[in-house]
């Protein structure tokens, strides 16, 4: 038993080292040392979110209620960035890293984890910094329940990571996945809950929209942010179930990929 614990600890130490090394490598290859360097990690999503927020605010495109538009756009678009960019980073993640897999301890799993952590870190920092910015200039009221916000964000990240792992591992088996994901991501965007609240939809449409796991996360997140202004509809256990299903599927696929991968 003691021996087993010791071996587990050694493995964990190695894995932590490898993921940290890959994480830093990812930061260097993606952002480099030029101009603002790794700040792009969250400046880029911030620009996106700011643009969308400005646009929606200007158009007063509030979908069927008197919701505060800025926190609506902020929560909506931030969560889109969180789940939509992760699969983009896991699709084709293995080939550019093949030469690093020369090192026995670098495994397929570590490459995915490092990339996903970086993506979550960027989207999270962008969300937090923009929240602080808007709150401090008075455009947004502070979240009513910050724990709910954090939990909703976590669930969205979990869902996005699971989906990304599934799509990423599938993309190693078929090039079609890459081709299909990009249009699909655009199609999911308008029904992912970013641009509407479920309550405002016709009852018939609500039923179908609630099949999409991200919708529940966004609704929960918004309930934490400005829950007294609308009636949130969500079922986090459904979201957790679908996400875990995708995660398990992704892990099984990953075993197949890991067996087939040949380091350069």
């Amino acid at each position: 038993m003691k021996q087993a614990t010791k071996e587990l600890m050694t493995s964990l130490t190695i894995q932590r080292r490898v993921i940290y090394a890959l994480f830093m490598r990812e930061v260097m290859t993606r952002f480099g040392r030029h101009n603002i360097g790794f700040l792009w990690l969250f400046v880029e999503p911030m620009i996106f979110t700011l643009g969308i927020t400005a646009l929606w605010t200007a158009m007063k495109s509030i979908h069927g209620s008197n919701l505060p538009i800025t926190p609506f756009a902020l929560t909506g678009y931030s969560s889109v960035l969180l789940w939509r960019n992760m699969p983009v980073r896991t699709i084709g993640a293995i080939p550019p890293n093949l030469s690093l897999m020369f090192h026995r301890n670098v495994r397929v799993m570590d490459i995915y984890i490092a990339r996903l952590l970086l993506e979550v870190a960027g989207a999270t920092m962008s969300f937090i910094l923009l929240s602080i910015l808007f709150i401090s200039i008075g455009m947004v009221d502070p979240p009513e329940d910050i724990l709910k916000v954090a939990w909703g964000w976590f669930m969205l990240a979990y869902c996005g990571m699971s989906m990304a792992l599934m799509i990423g591992t599938l993309s190693e088996q078929s090039e079609l996945v890459d081709k299909i994901w990009h249009p699909l991501a655009y199609l999911i965007f308008p029904i992912s809950g970013a641009g509407f609240i479920v309550e405002a939809l016709p009852v018939e449409a609500q039923k179908y929209v609630l099949y999409i796991p991200m919708v529940h996360g966004v609704e929960y997140l918004r309930e934490g942010y400005f829950g007294s202004r609308f009636h949130a509809i969500h079922d986090l256990s459904y979201m957790a179930l679908v996400s875990t299903g995708m995660l398990l599927f992704g892990l099984v696929q990953m075993r197949v990929v890991a067996r087939e991968v040949v380091p350069e």
Binding site: R17, Y20, A21, M24, R25, T29, N97, S99, V106
Partner: peptide, 17 residues
């Protein structure tokens, strides 16, 4: 090693691993 990284960054990477 990784071609787009500098020699130094490759050494860092391997040291970290």
């Amino acid at each position: 090693f990784q071609g787009s990284l500098t020699g130094i960054d490759n050494i860092r990477f391997i040291s970290r691993i």
